[in-house]
Structures are given as structure tokens and as C-alpha cells.
């Protein structure tokens, strides 16, 4: 690759050569001991026997995964059928996360585009405005959303009094409420990577397209979208992955009917109804799904960079 005059100062200097390992060691110890090891222990736990009242008995068992995928009847002596309860919870989570991602994309792309085409100070102010809500406590944002969209909440009240609707719109405890909550939780994650991609976009390409009589729409779909695709994909992953395992939005906005993976897992660790190996197994399945998505993404990244 021809190295341009890009000033990437000392991304690899060696003032402290030889100290690399001792300097990186604390990070290894903390993350290794309190994240990597715990995930391994969790994998082991998912193959143990459940103890009533929470916890496990140290005895190998496939019961957790069996319970997840197969239905053997009430007494466990029937021929195994596919158990749809948990699969459908996972499926619903994927669906909800996907819808939230699409919402984010529809609103996030134009926003990112608009910000990236501002100049100087304006641009940083807009960026700042978009990022602030992300730093506000997620719990508080979710509570605010719940407060806003309640049946007799401010949104319905406003629309009723203005005569826009005659009956309050029922949103809370529906799929839509969860999607809205997820959308609200992760919207900045969509805007920022797309913004970064648009910022690097060379507008001479748009000019060339216009000179060749491409319509605005054609320029957008044929020139711009392919050019900023990496940013769009990154944004989608950054929204989709945390949405998949989200807990607060489905818990506070979705009610009992709109169970997602997060709530399913959480329930396994609460008191007597809990089942630790099953919770560990569900977590492992969620983690594998996320890792698959991330690996596919990394693969595609390296392929595009050649």
C-alpha cells in the first residue's frame, strides 16, 4: 500500500520497550480473572445439575440444554419434541432487536448525514447534542419513556386534548413499546459510526454522479450508500447486539407478555424459582449468537480491507 503523507505519529514507538508486558499485565489480570475466567466457569455451570433454592450440584448434566431445546412431557418420560417456549423467546428477541435497529437506521442515517454535512462549530455542537442523552442513566431514560407513553401519560393527554385522537393510544406493554425503548436506548450508537463514515465520504463522487445526470435518488443508492456501508453496518451491529440481551426496556416497557432473553436469564437467578444451570446455558447461547455476529462482522471487515 502506498503510504500517503498521513501523519500517524508514533502509533508504534518504543520509548518504553521491554516494559510492554508489565504495563499490560494489570489489564490482563483484572479482565482475565474477573471476566474471562467467569465466562469459563459459567460454561461449566451450564453443564451441572440444578440445586433448588438457587446454586448448583457438582454433577455433570445436560439437563439445562435439554430443557432449552426439548420437551419431554410433564414427567420427562415422553419422546422428546422440540420445545418452542425458549426458542420463541430468543426469536422474539432477535425480531425486537432487528425492528429497533431498523428504526434507528431510518432516523439515524439522515441525522448522521445532516451532522456530517455541517461545518466547523455547528458540527461539534450537533454531535454533542446527539451524544448527551446516551450518557444519561439508561434506567432513567427507560423510566422517562415509560412515563411519556403511558395510557394516561403526557403524550396521550396532549393528543387527546388537541383532538388528534379520541381514545388514548395503548402502547405500554406492547411490542412497540419495547421497540421504542430499545430504539431510545441505542440510537446514538447508530448515528456516530455513520457520521464517521459520511465525514470521510468524498463529495467529488456526488458531483461526478450529478455531472453524469444521475438523479439525487440514484446518487444516494448507487454512490453514497455503498461508500458509507461500513459505517451503516457498524451502527447496526452496535444497536442490534446490546438490544438482543437488553433487560431494562423489555422489563419496564414490555410487561409480562413481551419477555425477552434478558428477562428470561434474569429470572433464573432470582430466588427459589431460579435455575442456575439453565440461566448459564441461556447466557451461553446468547453469547454464542453475539460472537457469531461479531465474527461475521470482523471477517467482512478484513475482507474489505484486503
Amino acid at each position: 500500500m502506498a503510504a500517503g503523507p498521513q501523519p500517524t505519529p508514533n502509533s508504534n514507538t518504543s520509548t518504553y520497550a521491554g516494559f510492554g508486558i508489565p504495563l499490560i499485565l494489570p489489564a490482563w489480570v483484572i479482565i482475565g480473572f474477573f471476566l474471562v475466567v467467569p465466562v469459563c466457569v459459567m460454561l461449566i455451570y451450564s453443564f451441572l445439575t440444578k440445586e433448588f433454592r438457587g446454586g448448583v450440584i457438582w454433577e455433570f448434566s445436560l439437563a439445562a440444554y435439554d430443557q432449552f431445546f426439548f420437551d419431554r412431557g410433564l414427567f420427562g418420560d415422553e419422546a422428546p419434541k422440540i420445545e418452542w417456549t425458549y426458542i420463541s423467546i430468543f426469536w422474539r428477541s432477535i425480531w425486537q432487536a432487528a425492528v429497533a435497529t431498523v428504526f434507528c437506521l431510518i432516523i439515524g442515517f439522515p441525522t448522521a448525514w445532516f451532522i456530517a454535512t455541517r461545518t466547523g462549530r455547528n458540527r461539534s455542537i450537533w454531535l454533542f447534542l446527539i451524544t448527551i442523552p446516551y450518557w444519561v442513566n439508561l434506567l432513567i431514560r427507560t423510566i422517562s419513556m415509560k412515563f411519556l407513553i403511558r395510557d394516561n401519560g403526557p403524550m396521550n393527554e396532549l393528543m387527546l386534548s388537541s383532538g388528534l385522537i379520541s381514545e388514548p393510544i395503548h402502547i405500554i406493554n406492547t411490542n412497540l413499546a419495547v421497540q421504542l425503548g430499545l430504539f431510545y436506548s441505542y440510537l446514538p450508537f447508530m448515528v456516530l459510526p455513520i457520521y464517521a463514515a459520511v465525514e470521510r465520504y468524498n463529495f467529488a463522487l456526488s458531483e461526478a454522479a450529478a455531472d453524469l445526470y444521475a438523479s439525487r435518488y440514484v446518487t444516494l443508492t448507487q454512490i453514497i450508500l455503498p461508500a458509507v456501508k461500513p459505517g451503516i453496518i457498524a451502527g447496526c451491529i452496535l444497536v442490534f447486539v446490546p438490544s438482543l440481551g437488553a433487560f431494562l426496556a423489555p422489563d419496564l416497557l414490555g410487561g409480562a407478555k413481551n419477555f425477552m432473553i434478558g428477562s428470561l436469564i434474569e429470572e433464573q437467578f432470582k430466588g427459589a424459582a431460579g435455575n442456575w444451570p439453565f440461566g448459564a446455558a441461556a447466557s451461553m447461547i446468547l453469547l454464542s449468537m453475539v460472537l457469531v455476529v461479531l465474527t461475521l462482522y470482523a471477517r467482512q471487515q478484513t475482507r474489505e480491507q484486503g
Binding site: P38, M42, F247, E266, A280, S283, L287, V290
Partner: peptide, 19 residues
């Protein structure tokens, strides 16, 4: 490794740490 905590879903980290 440094970025690992960002990749693992929060709920999975929570379960693993508890266990």
C-alpha cells in the same frame, strides 16, 4: 482483551460474574 467487556452482552457478564 481490553475491548472484551464491550463485546460480551451485559447480562452475560452479570451472570458470569455472579456465578
Amino acid at each position: 482483551l481490553i475491548n472484551l467487556p464491550l463485546m460480551v452482552p451485559e447480562i452475560v457478564t452479570a451472570v458470569a460474574t455472579l456465578i
